[in-house]
Design a protein around this nucleic acid. Structure first.
Length: 260
DNA sequence: CCGGATGTTCACCT
DNA sequence: GAGGTGAACATCCG
């Protein structure tokens, strides 16, 4: 599920956990604990601590503690966050029901009895202690024009593959990438480094506008292109039949008439 | 039954 | 080094 927009929603939910004292940490699925500090006891040192900030970089949620470690959470495609029983996804998203507590991979219980839970049926995500973020590119929601230009420059890689590369630009997933390129009018197959400075400016403008609009609508799956991402799908702008191919390792839909 | 799905990492190619 | 591919994860949906 989560791309940048959903993880931002999770982050806002997690702000409700700030300042509350951690009474216990549960690791029902030790396999889900990742990174150098992984182990069945990952997070036990959090007991007694309070989360001081909920941050987000790309698709990673970071929970700071005052003096202790930073908890980094990746949600994969199917992970979600619950606080005191409330699912961060909410009722807006048309996703499979993820209500089975058997999919709880990691949780924190506060001394007020409330809980913060990471639930992930497919186990595609992970919980990290002091996650190394050095390989992550600038956040797509905050990146400036020059940052976007740098992420694309000098590469013959397809534009979409570059946008999905989290080490170049963090936060854009498959659905947002297709929606963005459709709105901005660029072929996903266009070599990333072939964009002129004017075209990068256009892409940057559409990146900001697309993220803002999809946020207002409720998530990554609310784009104009979404319903047409299927066999027989047509461009909502000009009615041309959409093309489908694998680009950057992901299923890609685009309009050959106006995306160049 | 089969294929595909919002993600990431890694091994293994070219 | 740069890219590409496929596997792994486990469940749901058409």
């Amino acid at each position: 599920m989560p791309e940048l927009l959903e993880v931002e929603r999770y982050r806002i939910l997690a702000e409700g956990a700030l300042g509350r004292r951690v009474a216990d940490v549960a690791t029902p699925d030790p396999w889900y604990l990742k990174g150098a500090a992984a182990g069945p006891a990952l997070g036990q040192e959090l007991v007694g601590a309070r989360f001081s900030a909920a941050r987000r970089i790309g698709k990673v949620l970071l929970l700071d503690t005052e003096a202790g470690p930073v908890v980094g959470i990746r949600f994969g495609m199917t992970g979600t966050l619950l606080l005191d029983g409330e699912d961060a996804v909410g009722p807006l998203l048309h996703v499979p029901t993820r209500t089975d507590p058997a999919w709880d991979r990691w949780s924190v219980t506060f001394d007020d009895g409330g809980r913060l839970v990471v639930r992930d049926p497919r186990r595609l995500g992970g919980v990290f202690l002091d996650l190394d973020l050095t390989g992550l590119g600038p956040d797509a929601a905050a990146v400036g024009l020059s940052g976007l230009a740098a992420a694309l420059a000098g590469s013959g890689t397809p534009l979409k593959a570059r946008l999905l590369d989290q080490s170049r630009l963090a936060g854009v997933g498959n659905l947002i990438a297709d929606e963005l390129l459709w709105r901005a009018g660029f072929s996903p197959c266009r070599p990333a480094g072939s964009l002129t400075s004017g075209e990068v400016r256009r892409l940057h403008r559409h990146l900001r506008a697309t993220l803002a609009e999809l946020t207002a609508r409720g998530g990554s799956h609310t784009g104009d292109l979404q319903e047409e991402r299927r066999p027989g799908g047509r461009c909502p702008r000009d009615g041309h039949g959409l093309l489908r191919a694998t680009v950057g390792g992901r299923t890609t839909w685009w309009c050959p008439a106006h995306q160049r």
